[in-house]
Design a protein around this nucleic acid. Structure first.
Length: 304
DNA sequence: AGTGACGCCTGGGAGC
DNA sequence: TGCTCCCAGGCGTCAC
């Protein structure tokens, strides 16, 4: 699943692959992939054709490419979206939904998305941030991220710390995988109430999140299957560095206790029962309904 | 305003 | 073998 590190790897690929080039032809094979472009697919195409890509930006899990028209091509990969920069003669994959060809007749940009939770749309204004992304908080790797404001805002919340980490209006870029990894590193259970955390504890959590995100970017992101790849189609290697996510029953890398899996918001949470004790008063959540790996198809982690 | 539940999607594995 | 069910999960929307 693309979270901040995977999206950043894609952004770097777009910077290399499409910035400075002029769009010549756009085709939309599946209207759902541009559904957030409210004026429709025809307008989406019209606002891209003939435009030059100025730069490639990211906030959290959102990407945008400012254009010389003042608009920006905005994209979100959702759960399975891919932006590929490939030779035009490469065969079309099954879930190819949008194609951009450029005036230089070089590699084309393709939006491929199996589950179609992601999408592309054109919005007005790309600098410094499109208004359409105003609701998305800065991410922990943004130089302008305000640590103390985050610490205060998180402690004002009255919810569990994992929910808060996943709230893109509080801090962006963190999804289920990196939330579990950051919580493991800072030895916090995701059910810990945010208003009961000390300032130092929240600062440690933020530091852990920053560390794990940075390390994942350096590894090219986390790929469990073919659903996340770079613009060149390459898988990331961070999966082998995960300490909690997907490691149910395996030994905690810190204390050796078997990692547990719990059901959380209709998905899975992984944590160490010894290093990350459930908060007092927190009722034991229902166990995840299946004891097998939470991995989707094609998972390749050793199971023991 | 803050919080949480729900629906949208598809492919593949488990189980029958 | 073939069918059905379940599951992964980001985020927009809506209800409370």
């Amino acid at each position: 699943m693309p979270e901040l590190p995977e999206v950043e790897v894609v952004r770097l690929g777009l910077e290399r692959g499409v910035v400075g080039r002029t769009v010549e032809q756009v085709s939309v094979g599946r209207a759902r992939s541009v559904r957030r472009h409210v004026e429709g697919a025809g307008d989406f195409v019209a606002r891209l054709q003939g435009r030059t890509v100025l730069s490639a930006h990211r906030r959290g899990k959102h990407l945008w490419l400012p254009l010389d028209s003042g608009d920006a091509l905005l994209g979100h990969l959702g759960m399975s979206g891919q932006l590929l920069v490939v030779p035009a003669e490469a065969p079309d994959p099954k879930h190819l939904h949008v194609r951009l060809r450029f005036a230089d007749a070089g590699r084309e940009l393709r939006f491929v998305d199996q589950r179609t939770f992601g999408g592309l749309f054109v919005v007005a204004g790309g600098e410094p941030v499109p208004p359409a992304l105003a609701h998305v908080a800065r991410d922990p790797l943004d130089p302008a991220f305000d640590d103390e404001a985050f610490v205060a805002a998180l402690r004002r919340r009255r919810t569990g710390v994992k929910r808060a980490l996943l709230d893109q209006t509080l801090v962006s870029g963190i999804g289920n995988i990196y939330a579990d990894e950051a919580l493991w590193r800072s030895q916090l259970h995701g059910n810990r109430p945010t208003d009961g955390l000390s300032r130092p504890a929240v600062r440690r959590l933020l530091l852990s999140a920053r560390e794990v995100l940075g390390e994942a970017i350096a590894s090219g992101g986390t790929s469990f299957d073919a659903l996340y790849v770079s613009t060149e189609g390459v898988s990331g290697l961070f999966e082998r560095s995960l300490a909690a996510y997907g490691r149910e029953g395996e030994a905690c890398l810190r204390c050796g206790a078997p990692i547990r899996r719990e059901s959380f918001m209709n998905r899975s949470s992984f944590s160490c029962p010894r290093c990350q004790p459930r908060p007092a008063g927190s009722t034991k959540p229902a166990q995840a309904s299946r004891s097998s790996s939470a991995r989707t198809a094609g998972g390749s982690l050793p199971s023991a």
